[in-house]
């Protein structure tokens, strides 16, 4: 699992693994707006995690934070080819790998 099947068909660049450096992994809620990334894992359990994955947030999926709502929460996130609003508490359960520009 993991990045093994990160859909090379996506046309985006895969995170480059520079010698000696692990790719930067962060949780989605601390990903800077505008930074392209890919989902590494969904750590949640139960209905919420399932729904997230049904909506396409599965390992390998391209994600990018667009912006936060006026009160700082929820976040607008671009997943695959559409935009999704989710709270920081949910975003925290998603680990992403930052794609190098």
């Amino acid at each position: 699992m993991g990045l093994a099947h990160t859909a090379l068909n996506q046309g985006d660049e895969l995170p480059k693994r520079a010698e000696g450096f692990a790719p930067a992994t962060v949780s989605l809620d601390s990903l800077d707006a505008g930074t392209p990334a890919r989902v590494l894992s969904v750590r949640g359990e139960g209905a919420v995690a399932r729904r997230l994955m049904e909506m396409g947030v599965v390992p390998g999926a391209p994600v990018r934070v667009i912006k936060a709502a006026p009160l700082g929460d929820p976040l607008e996130v671009r997943v695959r080819n559409y935009h999704l609003a989710l709270r920081r508490s949910e975003a925290r359960t998603i680990t992403v790998v930052v794609c190098d520009k």
Binding site: M1, H5, A7, N9, Q10, G11, D12, V42, A49, R50, M53, E54, G56, V58, P59, G60, A61, N81
Partner: peptide, 24 residues
């Protein structure tokens, strides 16, 4: 999570050749 991931894996394969252009 395997069935969820597996379905998307299959979808990605199926759409690979059928979609062209800026998916960004």
């Amino acid at each position: 999570q395997e069935p969820l991931t597996a379905r998307y894996r299959w979808i990605e394969q199926a759409t690979e050749g059928a979609v062209r252009g800026a998916r960004g």
